[in-house]
Design a protein around this nucleic acid. Sequence first.
DNA 1: CTCTGAGTTTAGCCATTGCTAAACTGACTG
DNA 2: CAGTCAGTTTAGCAATGGCTAAACTCAGAG
Lengths: 136, 136
Amino acid sequence: MATAKQNRHSRTRSDHATELTEDYVEAIFDIVAANGTCRAVDLANQFQVSHVTINRTVGRLQRDGYVETEPYGPIELTTKGTKLAKASKERHQIVLDFLLALGISRSTAIADSEGIEHHVSPETLNAMKEFIESKD
Amino acid sequence: MATAKQNRHSRTRSDHATELTEDYVEAIFDIVAANGTCRAVDLANQFQVSHVTINRTVGRLQRDGYVETEPYGPIELTTKGTKLAKASKERHQIVLDFLLALGISRSTAIADSEGIEHHVSPETLNAMKEFIESKD
DNA sequence: CTCTGAGTTTAGCCATTGCTAAACTGACTG
DNA sequence: CAGTCAGTTTAGCAATGGCTAAACTCAGAG
């Protein structure tokens, strides 16, 4: 009877790009909030990746309309980028709070929430929110 | 004062490869269990990806010692591959049961668990297990 | 024993995400 | 105003994970 299961893993493909995009706009948002401005070198620090990789990734973010930047200039989020950053940060925070409410240690919760945040549907996110509130 | 945060996103890099490996050995394990044998075409069905992609990915799995296969022959898990498949399946099941225990609908739980399973630490997995048991 | 067709493999293309090495900019120092 | 140096960009390499088109294998039908 062959497989029985179907599709399902199909997300995996393009979603890795989405994850990276979300991580970047989140980081840019935070760095601008902290430093007033964001340079490539700040992102290289954040992600522990070479500045060259940053440069090209930022180029893709610009191509896709998430950031604005000029040669040798700072990196700024567009409206679209800011919107995505805020949504990602909110999701991230809920996942983190949820893990903490579940009794996970802070350091593990921080690490796991980074990975999990990109994979929670609105329904699950909502359930997490309710769980957190029930623990207040 | 620059960034303040540090590292943390460093997992993202090589982990995508690990995720794919886990998904593949899990699928191979299931297909062998269901059909008695696993062919490239079964995996192509499962992942909705061309058979050519399957072929090369299986090549990498073989290179890395997870599967054994000969040209035009079936695909079999090595001891190492079987071990990883079982561990992944167990983790997957716990995450799924956890989401269900949290009140998530079955279809969403199935979808989300696919994404989340690769990002839960042993500590979090344990907390999930306890949560499930507390609901019995 | 040939022929056909499902399944596999090879060849060759593209984008992404990593890297090092080398060239370039621009601002601050002397 | 020349030099230096941090930061940026360009050039070019590798591995991964996707694809189509074309060639090959092998088992089952005639």
